[in-house]
């Protein structure tokens, strides 16, 4: 028999093969961290003084005050209404925009227009969009609804466009081969394939709009956010805590429901 095979060792090759690049990147990362921490104005005195103040504020907030429930119900009802209306309109608008923004089924000029709409709708945080709409149409729920429509359009439109780009092209080919035109191909070959995604995204967006409707209220766009902001302004921390607790409860419930529905989809 032949001798035992030579002993061979093995190590996982490093992720970055070039050692100069590997250690260089590592050095840069730590160098930047050191510079960032050293140059930012961390005022330890303010942090130390801040803690007791935070404790005082939160102390005032306990126990939460649910007595003004009428105000709370009005605010939450408005928020939920805003979220539902904005989701319906935003999702409806996102479908044609998504079709436009899908490279595989749209001619280039239409594709670019669709992408531009989505990029525009997504480039600002809802709070900034809300500030613009409050300036444009005044305080209240209308500004909030318009904000959430833009928010839904951007998010659902983008993900739906990606879903359209990933559909099985064979099904499109088959419908096209039957002599169907563009819109029939959309209805028969594209929409059935993205339907589960569409429903899932819509439910997720409703959930997400509910959350965002509270935030945009802070800048005057209606809903529970306005009530919450007023409570802070009047130092009614106990009422504010009550609002926050209800908000968390509503979001948990809606997340639970939407998660369950989305799991059930195939």
């Amino acid at each position: 028999m032949s001798a035992a095979p030579p002993k061979r060792t093995w190590r996982k090759p490093p992720a970055i093969a070039n050692p100069v690049l590997r250690y260089g990147l590592l050095g840069l990362t730590f160098g930047y961290l050191y510079w960032a921490v050293a140059s930012l104005p961390f005022d330890w005195n303010r942090i130390v003084q801040g803690f007791p103040r935070a404790v005082r504020i939160f102390g005032n907030a306990i126990p939460p005050e649910f007595a003004r429930s009428q105000l709370m119900i009005t605010g939450f009802t408005e928020s939920i209404q805003m979220a539902i209306i904005a989701t319906l309109i935003g999702v409806a608008l996102s479908v044609p925009v998504a079709v436009m923004a899908a490279r595989t089924i749209s001619p280039t000029p239409v594709y670019l227009l669709g992408r531009a709409i989505i990029i525009l709708a997504r480039s600002f945080h809802p709070v900034i969009v809300a500030i613009i709409f409050v300036k444009a149409v005044g305080f209240g729920a209308l500004a909030g609804i318009l904000t959430l429509i833009v928010y839904s359009l951007g998010f659902v439109g983008k993900l739906l466009a990606e879903a359209i780009e990933e559909v099985d092209y064979g099904q499109i080919e088959a419908i096209r081969a039957s002599g169907a035109g563009y819109f029939k191909v959309l209805v028969y070959a594209v929409f059935p394939q993205i339907l589960p995604r569409q429903v899932g995204l819509s439910i997720y967006q409703l959930d997400s709009n509910l959350r965002a409707s509270a935030v945009v209220g802070v800048v005057g766009a209606g809903g529970i956010g306005g009530t919450l902001m007023n409570a802070f302004r009047r130092f009614d921390y106990d009422f504010a805590l009550a609002i926050l607790m209800v908000l968390i409860a509503i979001i948990l419930v809606s997340e639970g429901i939407s998660g369950r529905i989305r799991r059930g989809l195939t």
Binding site: G170, Q171, E173, A174, S178, A180, K184, P192, Q193
Partner: peptide, 24 residues
Amino acid sequence: MIFQGFNLIDRLSVMENVLSGRLG
């Protein structure tokens, strides 16, 4: 035309797939 991967519309019923032959 008949395809290698069948290319049926998976999420539609057999009848809808069959009738889609009349889309033209």
